[in-house]
Design a protein around this nucleic acid. Structure first.
Lengths: 194, 194
DNA sequence: GTCTATAGACCGATAGAC
DNA sequence: GTCTATCGGTCTATAGAC
C-alpha cells in the first residue's frame, strides 16, 4: 500500500474511533508510520486528508445497502439488512461524523455525509415500497417515513449500546423494530379466522 | 447566579454544542466571563467541571420522562412523549456524550450517561407494559425491546437530522415509529368485520 | 475568591535541504 | 517524495500575589 493510501486508511480508522476534532495529524503519522514531510506532501491540511478518508469510509459502508435491492422477497431483504451483523460498540463510520460540529460546519465534509444518508434512505424506501406493493406490509404504512424510522433505529441503537458499553440495547432495539414491522403485515384470511 | 453556577451552566451548554473533547476551559471562561483563577478555584480540572455539567444536563432532561407515567392512557402517554417538541438539530444533551471517546473512557462520566439511559428505559418499558396490559398493544410485543426501539428512533433521528441539516428526517422517523406502533394495536371486533 | 504570570506539551502548518 | 527544523498559537493546568 502506498503512502497516500496508508494515510487515508489510517485517518479513516481514526475518524471512526475518535472523530474529527479529537484526531491530530500527528496521531495519523504515528499510527501509519508516515513522516511529516510526506503527510503534507500528499495532503495540504488535516481537513483535506479527512475529506479523502471520509469518502473512503462512505465507499466502504454504502455497498452493503445493495442487498436491500437484491434477490428475495422485499420484506426478507429488509429484515436481513436490519439484522445484519454489526459491531454495535464501534458505531457507524458515517453517522458518527454528524456529532462533530467541525464536520457539520464544513459544507464539503457535510455533503459527503448527507449524500450517503440520502442514498441509504433511497434504498430503504425502495425496498419498503416493494414490500407494500407485494402485500407484505399494510398499505397504510408510508415507506419514506418508515425508511427514516429503521435508519434511526440503527443509528440510535449504536448510541444506546455505547451508553451502556454493551451491544445488548442495540440488539434489542432492532429486534423490537422487527417485531413492530411484522405487526404491520396485513391481516391474512387465516389470521382473521384463527 | 454565582460563579460556580455560571461555570456549570456554560460548560453544560458547550458540552451540548461542541462535546467534551472540543471544548476548552478557555472557551468556558470567555463565554461565562469567569476568570482563570476562579475557574480552577471551583473546579480542579476540565474533567471535574464536565462531570458537574453533565449531571446538570441529565437533571435537565430526565424529569420530562415522568410524563410517561403520568395521567392518560398508556398508549396516549407514549405517543405524546414520542411526539414531544424537540429541537432535532440540537440533538440530545445526554446521548451526544456517547460519541466522545474521552467520555466513554472515563468510568465516572460514562456512569452518569449510562444510568440516565437506564432510567429512561425503565420509564419507557413501564408505559409499554401498561399499554400491553390495557390491551392497547398486542400481547406479543416485548415492552423491553420496544422501549429500546423507541429510544433509538429518537437518538437516531437526531443523527439523520444533523446529517441533512434539516429536522425533517427526525420528524419522519418518529411519525414512522408511531405508525408502526399503531399497527401493533390488537385487532378489534370492528376491524375484523369491516 | 479572583487576579496575572508562567509552564510544558501539543496543535496544525510551513520551510527548505536532500 | 521524504526528511528535519521551526513557527505561532492553543491546551490544561500550576504558582503565588492580592
Amino acid at each position: 500500500m502506498g503512502t497516500r493510501e496508508r494515510l487515508v486508511q489510517t485517518m479513516s480508522d481514526l475518524l471512526w474511533e475518535r472523530g474529527y476534532a479529537d484526531t491530530s495529524p500527528r496521531e495519523v503519522r504515528e499510527r501509519s508510520g508516515v513522516g511529516q514531510g510526506s503527510q503534507y506532501h500528499h495532503f495540504a491540511s488535516k481537513r483535506d486528508l479527512a475529506l479523502a478518508a471520509l469518502r473512503h469510509n462512505v465507499d466502504d459502508v454504502l455497498p452493503a445497502a445493495d442487498s436491500l435491492s437484491g434477490p428475495g422477497s422485499p420484506l426478507a431483504r429488509i429484515e436481513a439488512y436490519l439484522l445484519r451483523p454489526r459491531d454495535a460498540l464501534r458505531g457507524c463510520k458515517v453517522g458518527r461524523m454528524t456529532q462533530d460540529p467541525q464536520v457539520r460546519e464544513d459544507p464539503e465534509l457535510l455533503a459527503v455525509v448527507s449524500s450517503a444518508f440520502t442514498a441509504m434512505h433511497t434504498q430503504w424506501a425502495h425496498a419498503l415500497t416493494e414490500a407494500v406493493t407485494a402485500g407484505e406490509l399494510r398499505s397504510d404504512i408510508d415507506p419514506e417515513q418508515v425508511a427514516h424510522t429503521l435508519m434511526a433505529v440503527l443509528q440510535g441503537g449504536y448510541v444506546l449500546a455505547m451508553a451502556q458499553g454493551d451491544p445488548a440495547p442495540f440488539e434489542q432495539a432492532r429486534q423490537g423494530a422487527l417485531s413492530l414491522l411484522r405487526a404491520a403485515a396485513p391481516q391474512t384470511p387465516e389470521s382473521l379466522t384463527k
